[in-house]
């Protein structure tokens, strides 16, 4: 028996079927697009570390970005040629001006954007203060954001790149300031990666920006030509560990000090500890070989980095495993520990 449908009922049923089909299709498409949504490695990446703190990756060295009512504090500026992208990334998270830039070293992939990002910022010091002999250019960096670094960074920078030079240097063990409701401490770590390395602790944000004092993408880069040493690297890693607060007693919570390394992923005390232990173990192995009067060639042949080559080593590129072993060997041979 054929069932009879009224016209209005048929219209309603047609409408429901169409609506369900469209909704179902939309759900399927949404699911599929979520699966396909992967970060594009060619673009800069902005990762939120804390509510007011970000890491920008992909511009050379990692860049730390602290936000607050007074403006933006940057730690490092990436490589030359990336500044437009860095600025665009910053504008997406804040419309405030860049007030300070702190350099962790003189490496080109950390200071390459100094000039461009500084000029895009705004000095916190306005007008001529006190003695008019000290003009805007001296006190206020011509209106641009201040560039802070250890004095040795200035010494190590190329004389031809004066636009990238820091405008304010410190020579003591640390430099402190309060900004954006945060205590900001810049610590000098002598003779580590170079002789001008700093790391920056943001007390309230609970973030440390370590620069290349902690680079979990490779064995520590020890630039002996610029005053670096394995002893200084280990001292720096230990100092970072001392200041990095673990998530205990409640490790399931996210509360902890986050560490932004020179390169690689956002880290914490656990990641720092694994790296520090690796560096100390490899150093101990090479020291033992030196104690047994092994030559550098014998040490290299004995593969003292076995156990860590696949994770941190490289046979090609700017920093090979052989270069690391050589620098440690020479550093340990030159000075007993």
């Amino acid at each position: 028996m054929a069932r009879k449908y009224s016209k209005s009922w048929k219209r309603k049923l047609e409408a429901w079927a169409l609506a369900l089909a469209v909704l179902g299709s939309a759900a399927g498409v949404r699911y599929a697009s979520a699966q396909d949504r992967q970060p594009n490695s060619r673009d800069l990446e902005v990762l939120q570390v804390q509510p007011n703190f970000y890491m920008i990756a992909g511009a050379g060295g990692n860049i730390g970005v602290q936000l607050g009512p007074a403006g933006i504090v940057l730690v490092d500026t990436g490589s030359a040629g990336t500044s437009d992208k860095v600025l665009a990334a910053i504008k997406k998270i804040s419309d405030k001006p860049i007030r300070y830039i702190i350099d962790t070293s003189a490496d080109p992939d950390h200071v390459g954007g100094n000039s461009a990002l500084s000029r895009a910022g705004l000095s916190i010091i306005s007008g001529v203060v006190g003695n008019p002999a000290f003009g805007e250019d001296v006190l206020g960096n011509n209106g641009a954001a201040s560039l802070l670094a250890h004095d040795n960074v200035l010494s190590r920078m190329n004389p031809g790149d004066s636009a990238e030079w820091p405008t304010k240097t410190y020579t003591s063990k640390f430099y402190k300031m309060s900004l954006n409701g945060d205590g900001i401490e810049t610590f000098h770590q002598p003779a580590a990666h170079t002789d001008g390395d700093s790391f920056v602790l943001f007390r309230r944000s609970n973030v440390i920006v370590a620069g290349d004092l902690f680079d979990p993408t490779r064995f520590p880069v020890i630039d002996t030509g610029k005053g670096g040493s394995i002893h200084g690297v280990i001292d720096a890693l230990n100092r970072l560990l001392e200041l990095t607060i673990p998530p205990y007693p409640q490790p399931w919570l996210s509360e902890r000090t986050f560490v932004i390394p020179g390169h690689g992923p956002v880290s914490d005390s656990h990641d720092l500890l694994e790296y520090r232990d690796m560096v100390v173990i490899v150093t101990d192995i090479i020291q033992d070989m030196i104690n047994r009067s092994m030559t550098l060639e014998q040490v290299k042949a004995a593969n003292p980095t076995r156990g860590y080559n696949a994770r941190y080593g490289a046979n090609t590129g700017p920093w090979t495993t052989e270069m690391f072993v050589t620098s440690v060997y020479k550093g340990l041979s030159a000075k007993g520990r």
Binding site: Q35, G264, V266
Partner: peptide, 11 residues
């Protein structure tokens, strides 16, 4: 259906 984070994300 969310994607996994990038290699630079916290572990």
């Amino acid at each position: 259906g969310r994607p996994h984070p990038s290699v630079n994300a916290f572990h």
